[in-house]
Design a protein around this nucleic acid. Structure first.
Lengths: 254, 254
DNA sequence: CATCTTGGCGTACGATGTACACAAGACGCG
DNA sequence: CGCGTCTTGTGTACATCGTACGCCAAGATG
């Protein structure tokens, strides 16, 4: 089994006053700091994001980041408990929830905008998907704000809290999967020597030989060989979102 | 910009005979090896998977893996060019495409089965999502086999190759996003001290204090406070899949 | 047997995350 | 102003990691 501990954690599992079992960095963010303040959480996160954007996630090391900030390596540890926490800060920092401008009363518009924005963010910061996978972080301030906005859009509809959350999770699932999948494909393209912005069909074509040779994938080979139209990933993403929301709306009678 | 190189890669970008630009490990898999053969690709992958299942992905180091196999560290490098390639092997090894048993003529059944299987695999091997994110790998043999099967199920339908692929990608997107999201939530639960199999609502509840205190998320706080029913993640996953496929079927007139 | 190819081994190097002890700047109180 | 006291920034040190390189052994081939 993968889980090393399965007993309940620190503090009573269900206590009303229990507080956050671990301060979880977001709690510490806005607590005022005394003494010297050459560094800030925001500044650190921003520099880390810039570094990852410029040189990739694997280039983000505590040493390099500290160098960029003109500070000793260990100074960073006064602000984050570990590198993983730094990654958490980064994943939260790239979500610009201020950019949501859709009519708050039109839930389909709000949901669509959230999804599209997520895809754009993922493509603009290709390291994001890997960072989120390495440091599982549901529930960051920015992400909570997005949930809040979606809940607001669902307010006038006759749905239970559970149904609203299910709707939000469904959108999140599709948007996450489609965005990550697209990013992974593009990173694959880049790794193979074609650029991040290359034609995705190159991947399929360069794979075709392998498909044909083994003979185990006749249908796949045929589809690739017959040629595919140039992909419009953004439009396909939209169609998927609309299809999913259509289907769920029918099920929920809205 | 994140992309370091945007020019076309090795070989001519569009050459007909171009072959795989890099041997890409899958090519090397079934080429026969001479000399001693105490190791095999399959054995290495299996041991690595077992290690990751037991101690987590971060415990998978070349040294520990070699120890487990009773072999020197560098021996592994005769079979994989890098640790990243090892991760690729692992991600392919856990996909058991032999387990697909749905009626091949019923495309909805086939698609549903593929999605469900994917979720089960992701939950059974929580490291999988992170591994796939770290080493973007579309197009592995096992994955190709799944695509082949789905294409087979779509054969009788009046769809173009592009439409078939779009359908497959849409299912892949939702299944990936929902599975990864669920895994991340559970890993988060485990990291916080509640087990991997704990009640997901604990996460929300422990987050509630933060929600209430800041006052920026009134709706979110209310929904959590009003209490949520125990989640049936599998059923919710199914509903999402069905909703998505319904919506797309309408769009494609099938 | 001689030779060659391939597979496994041991060592070594640079980079990484971070624990720990210490110095230096800011603040409260006299 | 002077002096504790707390917080922030620093320097060193260590375990661990991926992996380049050179060597030896084992099986195949002549």
């Amino acid at each position: 089994m993968a889980n090393t501990k399965n007993a309940c954690g620190p503090g009573e599992q269900d206590g009303e006053q229990g507080g956050a079992v671990q301060p979880s960095i977001w709690e510490r963010l806005d607590t005022p700091r005394g003494g010297r303040t050459t560094l800030t959480h925001a500044g650190i996160a921003e520099a880390a994001v810039a570094l990852a954007d410029a040189e990739g996630l694997e280039a983000v090391s505590m040493r390099k980041l500290a160098d960029r900030l003109g500070v000793a390596t260990m100074a960073l540890y006064r602000y984050v408990d570990s590198k993983d926490e730094l990654l958490e800060l980064m994943t939260d920092a790239v979500i610009d929830s201020a950019a949501l401008v859709a009519d708050p009363g039109d839930w389909r518009a709000v949901f669509g905008e959230v999804a599209v924005r997520r895809r754009e963010t993922a493509l603009a910061h290709p390291w994001l998907s890997a960072a989120q996978a390495h440091v599982p972080t549901t529930l960051t301030p920015s992400r909570n704000l997005v949930v809040e906005r979606m809940l607001g859009a669902l307010e006038p509809l006759p749905l239970t809290g559970d149904q609203k959350m299910q709707l939000i999770r469904a959108l999140d699932s599709y948007a996450r999967g489609a965005s990550d999948g697209e990013v992974y494909q593009r990173m694959m393209l880049e790794r193979r020597g074609f650029g991040f912005d290359g034609d995705i069909r190159i991947l399929l074509r360069s794979n075709m030989q392998w498909l044909l040779r083994s003979g185990r994938y006749p249908r796949f080979a045929r589809v690739v060989q017959d040629g595919l139209a140039p992909a419009d990933a953004a439009a396909e993403f939209d169609q998927g979102i609309e299809a999913l929301l259509d289907g769920l709306a029918v099920r929920f009678g809205i």
